[in-house]
Amino acid sequence: MAEPGNQAFPTSLRFRDDAAADEPSVSLDAFLDQGEADSVRIEAGEDVTVLFPHLDRVRLIEVDFPRFRDGRGFSTARMLREAGYTGELKATGDVLVDLIFFMRRCGFDSFAPDKPFDPADAEAALSRWDHVYVPAADDRVPIWKLRHG
């Protein structure tokens, strides 16, 4: 049985080419107080808009999912991308493989789930859908555009 950390069960997935941030992330309050950190962690229910004026100095934003059924982090991620954030956006906590397609579409580009994904399941989840009905934070073209050239 593969354990977390083994190659067969990587503990994280990352869809970026740049170097990962090397400083641990700080809480939103600490980030706003200190003005030095470049990695910040957002808990479910925190107001992400307070971060908007500082996005140009952020390299990593972690959005925590305390329970997989708590969907607030989806809005947090998409709002960050809509505000122009281009750094790493990482989903942490109770992240299930069945959610990662929608998470990618909301702008997440890395995942550090509490329980590692089976790579084959993750690959299947991310490649399953050829089409999407609606636009989100990614560049997939909605069906309503495809239909009309």
Binding site: R69, F74, L99, F102, M103, R105, I143
Partner: peptide, 14 residues
């Protein structure tokens, strides 16, 4: 129906 089927941001509504 089509626009509310699989809205990524609203995958886990309250």
């Amino acid at each position: 129906r089509q626009m509310t089927t699989f809205m990524p941001e609203f995958s886990y509504l309250p």
